[in-house]
Amino acid sequence: MDNLVTVEDVYFKRGDTSIYEGVSLQVPRGKVTAIMGPSGCGKTTLLRLIGGQLKPQSGSIKFADYEINKLGRNQLFNVRKRMSMLFQSGALFSDMTVFDNIAFPLREHTDLPANIIATVVKMKLQAVGLRGAGNLFPSELSGGMARRAALARSIALDPELIMYDEPFAGQDPISMGVLVKLIRSLNSTLGLTSIVVSHDIHEVMSIADHVCIMANKTIVAQGSPEQLKQEGNPLVHQFMYGEPDGPVPFHYAANGYNADLLGGGKP
């Protein structure tokens, strides 16, 4: 299969805490790949590794023909023009209008005349249904609208790869539905490759072609949604069906409960 992104045997540490121990995964070209896992397992870190903002201690990360973790600063900036990322907070520039936000990457990286930029921006805004909101500032948008505006900005340069960091977190059901539809339809109409990091099982399962489940500092399972539902691994089962206790314990690691309560009141 043709993979746009290949991650192989990556080890990554932040300070003294080990985050990944031997992560390997493939992102097939033209498909929606979901990366799921319990909170705090470092899903966002994976996106930053692919984007080259962080460097792994060992292992390799390939995007198209480039080995991201070996590129110099300038090459990295060139490769990044072909990918884009939708941040959890949207990360719109708060001192510009929505229109200018979306025009920003075009003005930075192309020499297009102003009227063509305006046309492109309007097309992108139309795609996310915000053509009427071009003159608003990010602070005047609702959370869902801000995320759609950010989405319009991330597709402004027609990237090959788009990475969504928790696109559904903190959204009401309606905007969630809108985003699900947008991610799916952008993927098919623009021929994008998408990586969605999320833990909203149902939404993700409905759009993903390929799913990777991450836990215990590595990938525990990957495959199509149907394959994963049949998966025998108890950890995957717990996650897929949202059970409160199992291999991922409900309790944070602690001393014995009795000993703690009777042990003299030390916190």
Partner: peptide, 10 residues
């Protein structure tokens, strides 16, 4: 994340 976002926009 505006700084990260700039970086990702090259």
């Amino acid at each position: 994340e505006q700084l990260s976002s700039l970086e990702m926009m090259a």
